[in-house]
């Protein structure tokens, strides 16, 4: 596999080359089309928020970014999605490796019914990222630390992860994703099942993770998008309506539909 190093400047709004780029993406569930010609750049080490009314296709779009839609029967995709300028739907790209590079955190916390330690160690183990038990311990510790969970769980590493609270479970899932040292982390409404305090913690965590990872977050809460993201994309009826810096989108939206949504006229 040749490494493509040439980076084209495709997006004027970002000074740097985008980490991921989506071009003319159409998605079909069987006969019905769910996404229409989506073009979007995702900038490195920034938080990009995807907002829009429910059913607008933002979660579907997110799942295209690490090919999670492959596991669903009857989904067909047109257009291309690149990671570091390599098409992730290319035949030469391996989906297992791709998902290691683009991690994902789901709407509902889904810890495996194993111990806390084993949950975090799962990724490094299957990908063979560590050579010794000590190294694995180190990775688990670092990941839990990054997820801000270490203080809460350091004495109960061998206990089942299902015994944690909802917020802790979600942060464990983030730690689990981080442990594979991905480049991009996709988050699908990570706070929708959490209470406000747990939500605040996860938001804080997302802000910290920004220094090391590129993050794409789907959220139904505009406040959350405003709080955590640098760039925001607004989806409506399967189309990307508007994308821009978060400040601009929330203070000065160009499109009428965006304006309508963020002022709460529909949603």
């Amino acid at each position: 596999m040749a490494v493509v190093t040439a980076r084209a400047m495709t997006d004027g709004t970002s000074a740097q080359a985008p980490k991921m780029a989506v071009r003319k993406l159409d998605l079909f569930y069987g006969e019905s089309q769910a996404l229409y010609e989506v073009d979007l750049d995702i900038a490195e080490k920034q938080v990009t928020a995807l907002i829009g009314p429910s059913g607008c296709g933002k979660s579907t779009f997110l799942r295209c970014l690490n090919r999670m839609n492959d596991t669903i029967d009857g989904v067909t995709i047109k257009g291309n999605v690149t990671l570091d300028d390599r098409d992730i739907y290319d035949k030469a790209i391996d989906v297992v490796q791709l998902r290691a590079r683009i991690g994902m955190v789901f709407q509902k916390p889904n810890p495996f019914p194993k111990s806390i330690y084993d949950n975090v160690a799962y990724g490094p183990r299957i990908h063979g990222l560590v050579n010794s038990r000590d190294e694995l311990d180190e990775v688990v510790m670092t990941s839990l630390e990054k997820a801000g969970l270490i203080k809460e769980v350091k004495d109960r590493m061998a206990e089942p992860a299902t015994g944690l609270s909802g917020g802790q479970q979600q942060r464990l899932c983030i730690a689990r994703a981080v442990a594979v040292s991905p480049e991009v982390i996709l988050m699908d409404e990570p706070c929708s099942a959490l209470d406000p305090i747990a939500t605040a913690k996860v938001e804080e965590l997302i802000d910290e993770l920004r220094s090391n990872y590129t993050i794409v977050i789907v959220t139904h809460s505009m406040q959350q998008a405003a709080r955590v993201s640098q760039r925001t994309a607004f989806f409506h009826l399967g189309k990307l309506v508007e994308v821009g810096d978060t400040d601009q989108i929330f203070t000065n939206p160009k499109d009428e539909r965006t304006k309508g949504y963020i002022t709460g006229r529909f949603g």
Partner: peptide, 18 residues
């Protein structure tokens, strides 16, 4: 076994047999 557990595992880049 709920789909979310499978998703969690696939999302980390596990193969089917793993």
């Amino acid at each position: 076994v709920p789909q979310s557990l499978r998703d969690g595992s696939y999302g980390l880049g596990a193969t089917k047999s793993e």
